[in-house]
Design a protein around this nucleic acid. Structure first.
Lengths: 200, 200
DNA sequence: CGGCCCGCATGACAGATGTCATCGATTCCC
DNA sequence: GGGAATCGATGACATCTGTCATGCGGGCCG
């Protein structure tokens, strides 16, 4: 019997996934959580064999919870996400996640994936993995990404500069470089693009 | 026995919801679809008693499918959405949707809601309904919304003007008005805000 | 009819933004 | 130590953007 922790901020989805997994005789959900902080707490209390986490989960994201659960309990983590892009996959694997499942995956496959991961192997969505190998990596530097992340909310440059502790002129330089690399006309278009690619 | 159509573009969610609903003895899923066009086709073929549709579903959105299914089959539609804001609720109700369920709803409630709607009554998430009554309506005009929708992708003003067939100066005027109403510093912040509120 | 409001457009102007050349400080490597 | 590379910053300049005042035409209502 594989004991699972299930975390997703959307109650309907969390409950539906629980119902789906309850159909499997060898799986049992021993804990649920609606945010990443609770997820870690419940994991420490229930000591599940494996954790299934939604990536899009406040506060921050599920990746932090995944890292923490892995370091504190040493159990494998399966990450479920709607935003399945190569860059996201890279970050997830870097964080030591054992399973990477887009929400477009057929529901019937989830149980097998969980068993695969529980047995010590890894599972990565083949389509995303293929893209990750063929697609170019993100051409942006860390600073450029950091700045674009702030820009995404629509903030004017002065605010961005304050947020990242840089001079406004410097921010404009970084944005100029990022826009050139991305072929974007405005910093907002660049931020939009970077987000769609999963870079920020 | 209530015969259901289930449409959601995310296979994992669709399958999980099917598993959840299959637990109820009086509910049966007779058709599934992964996009709004297929949803209408399947509905016409299977003639379900009720349709459960995800709002965020390509192409366009689930609202179009909801309207079409209602007009062609006359059956009640339950709309499930992640983006539950008062403005979205208003649009859904205007389209004749009988049930409005945020994805944060506890999973256990979905079956009751479906029964309620099937019996001819309506169900609207109480929290969203309360906000819809107390919150101010959208202060933006149709043109302002149309323009903000184009702006959201990060396009420069010239492109926006071309997209909506207006002079660039006029676009700036509309944006200026919208930004004033929304208290935003830039058109991008305004577009971001309008989207968060579900206005575009 | 005449006034009035509204949608659309224009022009002018200040301030924000994108581009570019350059410079100081730090680090790394030979 | 010298030199190259990198990061952060500055200043100048052309453009783009946001604001405001204004004008034109078409409905609407008294």
């Amino acid at each position: 019997m594989i004991r699972l922790l299930l975390a997703d901020d959307e109650g309907l989805i969390r409950g539906a996934l629980a119902a789906l997994l309850a159909l499997e005789p060898d799986l049992t959900v021993v804990g649920e959580a609606a945010d990443s902080v609770t997820a870690v707490q419940v994991a420490l209390r229930e000591r599940p064999d494996l954790a299934v986490l939604d990536l899009e989960m406040p506060p921050g994201d599920g990746l932090r919870a995944a890292t923490e659960i892995r370091s504190k309990l040493g159990i494998p983590v399966v990450l479920v996400t709607r935003h399945a892009r190569p860059a996201v996959l890279r970050r997830a694997l870097a964080a030591g996640v054992a399973g990477f499942v887009p929400k477009t995956t057929p529901a019937a496959r989830l149980a097998e994936i969980i068993r695969t991961v529980h047995s010590g192997r890894r599972y990565v969505d083949p389509e995303i993995a293929a893209s990750a190998l063929t697609e170019d990596a993100c051409p942006l530097t860390d600073r450029e990404l950091e700045i674009l992340a702030v820009v995404r909310g629509g903030a004017p440059i002065a605010e961005v500069a304050a947020a990242v502790h840089l001079a406004p002129g410097t921010v404009r330089n970084y944005l100029s470089a990022a826009m050139a690399k991305l072929g974007a006309d405005t910093r907002h278009a660049a931020a939009h693009h970077a987000w769609q690619q999963g870079w920020i």
